[in-house]
Design a protein around this nucleic acid. Structure first.
Lengths: 195, 195
DNA sequence: GTTTTATTCGAACAAATGTGCTAATATTAT
DNA sequence: ATAATATTAGCACATTTGTTCGAATAAAAC
């Protein structure tokens, strides 16, 4: 739907806004992405608007706004992980949350905790955990895992006598040995609880 | 240092940015705050810049940025509450954190949790709790309290047989009856944990 | 190959916008 | 009252900036 050049422009705008606190002018985008004509930039901006990535205010300068889904510091909240569905599929997004530390929001998402299997670690039901897909889950880390392509869960990953286990922080639950039905999603990097 | 009109202008800019995603032009500020001359606005803008409230980029349109301390969604993190000191005194601010739900940042601040007296509620040492000074702490709420003007603490407030107690969520600690040495700071409304 | 579509450029225009200058008025200090 | 300071206004000017039109080039489809 959007070409590389358009992604390039969107990215430039994002970085510009992040750095300067206001959007670039058409001509600043020109030099920023290596284009010589303002109308070429207009052309791409219109495409980005039609694709829903940008918003504009007619005839106002620097009145570009990047739509929230792809703006920095804002990451999607996923609902229950549906069977076989792609994790980041849009139909699973039930909201979004600002997350100040996010540099690259693409690797991050939030998941609402269901169940009490991590209660002893102070992770409650309804808490929001931030998951970084780009970070490998190491021994001792808390990670998000997908079981049988059906169920999402938050657990400790622990290596015991050479074997990997998903270990809950609740005596009422048992640890599960990692097998081919369990795939890692990402490392839990943060927790947000509203009261 | 800054006059009412200048605060008025700063507030207008803040709201405008919040609403539109980009800063207002000089003439938009004119009509927004009820001034008829662009140079009057320039005059006030320069004052606000000299006072450190605003930043500007010379000859660029809509290139105003509100300095972070007074921008929305950003609230101060306080360190240990020093004896007798005013809670929000600047010397106690050790950082700041973005908090998406903040409408009026003035009533909110963040406190780093020390100790494990609320461990059974999943509130750990080093967690960041967001406190709303404008919300009264009611029976059953978790609140922040100042004891003997010296020590800050997070506890449940519970009314037992007509008397108010600060109740920890940890069997190793005892509840404390509320007396004149204990003053409420605000209600704990959120928790952030980085791992 | 031809046609269609996507992308780029150049130039010109009108509007929006920041700035500079001078003067008038209001407020405060002495 | 007088002087100093703060605030406001009006106007003109130079740039910046978004927009538009036509045409050239590149890429993709047929």
């Amino acid at each position: 739907m959007v070409s590389d050049k358009q992604k390039n422009i969107l990215n430039f705008i994002n970085i510009f806004v992040e750095k300067n606190g206001y959007a670039p002018s058409v001509r600043e985008i020109c030099t920023g992405v290596g284009l010589k004509s303002t109308s070429t930039v207009q052309y791409h901006i219109e495409k980005l608007i039609n694709s829903g990535y940008l918003q504009k205010n007619y005839k106002k300068s620097r009145a570009l706004t990047v739509n929230s889904q792809m703006s920095k510091n804002k990451i999607p909240i996923l609902g229950e992980i549906a069977a076989g569905s792609l994790l980041m599929a849009e139909e699973n997004v039930i909201g979004s949350v600002n997350y100040p530390h996010a540099e690259e929001a693409t690797e991050l998402f939030a998941l609402s905790v269901s169940g009490d299997s991590m209660i002893d670690e102070g992770i409650h039901e309804k808490d929001l955990v931030i998951i970084d897909k780009s970070l490998q889950i190491k021994n001792g880390d808390i990670g998000a895992f997908l079981i049988n392509n059906t169920e999402g869960t938050i657990k400790f990953l622990r290596n015991i006598e050479g074997k990997n286990y998903l270990v809950p922080a609740n005596k009422n639950y048992k640890k599960i040995q990692v097998n081919e039905n369990i795939q890692p999603i990402g490392k839990v990097v943060s927790l947000i609880r509203d009261m």
